[in-house]
Design a protein around this nucleic acid. Structure first.
Lengths: 217, 217
DNA sequence: CGAATACTTGATTACCTTCAATACGCGTGG
DNA sequence: CCACGCGTATTGAAGGTAATCAAGTATTCG
């Protein structure tokens, strides 16, 4: 897998990597930074469907769906790797197990979508935000980006709103509630979970849907 | 593909086919009726993540994810076919193209999840309901279950609420608005789209995300 | 025909949005 | 070094969408 031809690129924050309607001939692997999958309504309101952390492949679906039905953009400065569809298809043909692993990746993405739907549809702001923070910490931890319950999370409140389907103002007030409850510390792009049990309870967070593998070196 | 060993079963409405936490060893194909993928919050509020129409495979993901992270239940009386994971894996090994087709199916499901997230997060009740109805009609049409802009849609308002993240009462009022606007007729489990352009505009519906194939006989 | 389920309606309340203004933080340039 | 400017965060007030509560009315089905 290391042998794959990869082109790398660096992007600034808030740049599109691919756009809805594109017909990509390659996939991108996020190597560093945070990216997101999003769509816009006709009035220009943005909904972020997924936050991608290093190691994720935001547009792996394009391997089997010609037309992209969402955009992918950076949230922070990012380092990306691009791999052509042809190379991936070749790899899957030569090593069917890798095909299965990639398929599985897309299924885990879908599992996260489902959980987010529960979050959007049935939890109010407080639990919704708590759940999101639990998930992000869990996923960042899985790729080694959390130390002592602290991680970089340089998202603006507007971006959190676009993830949660809330206004910036309400994100601000809800964050204050979480802080007042002693659950988190979030400032300067750094998040610390001060009370994991409390935060998980507030967000009804059960990481089963992430289908995390037991960690391997 | 016809040669696969399939067990069929008939279920009444409102029955679980598989439950969150299960470790299935087979997949189910919906042959007749409507089913749904759902989860419950701790307080027992239900969010429906997907409505399955005949031809869909609600738990195809279980092929690569051992633990099911959602439940699947019937919405109406259903006829189901069950196929063992082993048989499907064997088929994929023998015919890699079928593996790709199944993978694609799961990717289309994910594309629908994304669109629903936009719906839940960024559209208000009127547009949200309009969008849902557009999608259901489009998908039912694709499997030949729509005649003259009319189809069976025996969903209760409570179920529509569980799909849309709305209360039953509000679904009721929003349906009345759609009727008053002359867009739809819905009663007795039968839906007629009286003004497709109007309904699609209300829901900002663009079927691209469904990735429908040009119809084959 | 009666019970159960689904639908409808009105009144009240809660959550969240919007609008508007202010404060803070940080990098740039004078 | 400090002033300025810009983006982000915070705060208050007002308004709107949708939830909840509580009846009451249709339908469906045994």
């Amino acid at each position: 897998m290391q042998a794959l031809p990869v082109q790398t690129a660096e992007l600034k924050a808030d740049q599109d990597i691919v756009r809805e309607g594109d017909h990509p001939t390659r996939c991108c692997v996020l190597l560093e930074g945070l990216a997101c999958v999003y769509k816009l309504t006709a009035e220009g309101r943005r909904q972020i469907m997924a936050v991608q952390v290093p190691g994720d492949i935001p547009d792996l679906q394009s391997l089997h769906l010609n037309t992209l039905d969402n955009s992918v953009g950076t949230l922070t400065p990012c380092r990306l790797g691009f791999i052509s569809h042809d190379a991936i298809r070749e790899l899957c043909r030569a090593h069917p197990r890798i095909g299965g692993i990639l398929w599985r990746e897309t299924l885990v993405d879908a599992a996260i979508f489902r959980e987010w739907m529960l979050n959007l549809g049935r939890r109010e702001a407080y639990g919704r935000l708590a759940h999101l923070l639990c998930e992000l910490v869990a996923r960042l931890r899985a790729v080694g980006l959390v130390q002592d319950d602290t991680c970089d999370l340089p998202l603006t409140q507007a971006e959190l709103g676009d993830i949660l389907g809330l206004s910036t103002v309400h994100v601000n007030r809800t964050l204050q509630e979480l802080r007042a409850a002693g659950l988190i510390t979030l400032r300067g792009g750094s998040l610390t979970v001060d009370d994991w049990a409390g935060l998980a309870a507030a967000g009804e967070f059960d990481p089963a849907y992430l289908h995390l593998q037991p960690r391997r070196t």
